[in-house]
């Protein structure tokens, strides 16, 4: 099954590229909301890597079907970790956005360099 192998590499390359695209936004953008968007892209890339690792060839979603013998299941553990991480991700993102809203109210801007100038 050469195709699946190639797809695996492609998955990991996409993970690497999306991760670095997120990191680029965090480093280079001065806008705080843009930084948070970059952080959530970064986070999604990590999710993609975990879920790529859980795939088993010929496997199916880890839900046992009655009356079917010798089923191959994909690994349930990374799925559990990522499932909870997604929900935690949105709550921490909201916390970050709340801080950005307060920064906007105190400084009148959400551009990092303007905030540093104002201090």
């Amino acid at each position: 099954m050469k195709l699946l192998e190639l797809l695996g590499y492609f998955n990991y390359w996409v993970f690497a590229i999306v991760l670095t695209v997120g990191l680029y936004a965090v480093i280079s953008k001065a806008n705080l909301i843009k930084k948070l968007i970059g952080l959530s892209i970064f986070q999604s890339a990590v999710f993609l890597m975990y879920i790529t690792m859980d795939k088993v060839e010929g496997g199916t979603a880890p839900i046992i079907q009655a009356g079917v013998e010798d089923q191959v299941f994909s690994n349930p553990l990374p799925q559990v970790l990522i499932l909870t991480a997604i929900v935690v991700g949105v709550s921490t993102l909201a916390l970050g956005l709340a801080m950005v809203v307060r920064i906007k109210e105190s400084y009148g801007t959400i551009e990092e360099n303007e905030i540093l100038d104002a201090d």
Binding site: D54, K55, T60, A61, P62, S74, Q79
Partner: peptide
């Protein structure tokens, strides 16, 4: 979903 993670 393609990677078998229906819940995620």
């Amino acid at each position: 979903f393609i990677l078998d993670a229906a819940d995620v």
